[in-house]
C-alpha cells in the first residue's frame, strides 16, 4: 500500500461523499415548498434519460453522434419489453440476450 494512493483515495472519497450526503442532511429535516417537490419529482425521469440517451447514440472521445450502434438497436426491443412486462429482471436478461445476439452480427 503506497501512501500516495491512500491519500488520493481518501480525498477522492471525500469530494465524492459530500454531494451524496449534504442534500440528505439538509433536506430531509424540513418541509420543502411544493414547486421544489414537483421539481424533484421530475428529476429521476430526467436523470435516467440523460444518463441513457448519450450512451446509446454517441461514441468516441471527443463524443460525436453515432446512431449505428448495437447499443441503440438493442435498446428498442429491450425498451419494448420493459414497457410490456414492467419487470426489471426480465428486462435485464432480455437486454443481455439481445446484446449478445447483436454481437454475432456487428
Amino acid at each position: 500500500m503506497r501512501f500516495e494512493i491512500l491519500v488520493l483515495s481518501l480525498f477522492m472519497g471525500l469530494v465524492t461523499y459530500i454531494p451524496r450526503w449534504l442534500p440528505l442532511a439538509l433536506l430531509s429535516k424540513r418541509d420543502l415548498p411544493l414547486w421544489f417537490k414537483t421539481w424533484l419529482d421530475f428529476i429521476p425521469a430526467s436523470i435516467l434519460s440523460a444518463l441513457l440517451l448519450p450512451a446509446l447514440v454517441t461514441s468516441g472521445e471527443p463524443r460525436h453522434l453515432d446512431i449505428f450502434r448495437p447499443e441503440l438497436l438493442v435498446a428498442l426491443p429491450t425498451f419494448a419489453i420493459a414497457l410490456k412486462t414492467r419487470s426489471l429482471g426480465l428486462t435485464v436478461v432480455a437486454g443481455m440476450f439481445f446484446f449478445w445476439l447483436a454481437g454475432k452480427f456487428f
Partner: peptide, 8 residues
C-alpha cells in the same frame, strides 16, 4: 443499460 431502460 437494460436496467436503466426499465427504471426509466
Amino acid at each position: 443499460i437494460a436496467m436503466f431502460l426499465c427504471l426509466l
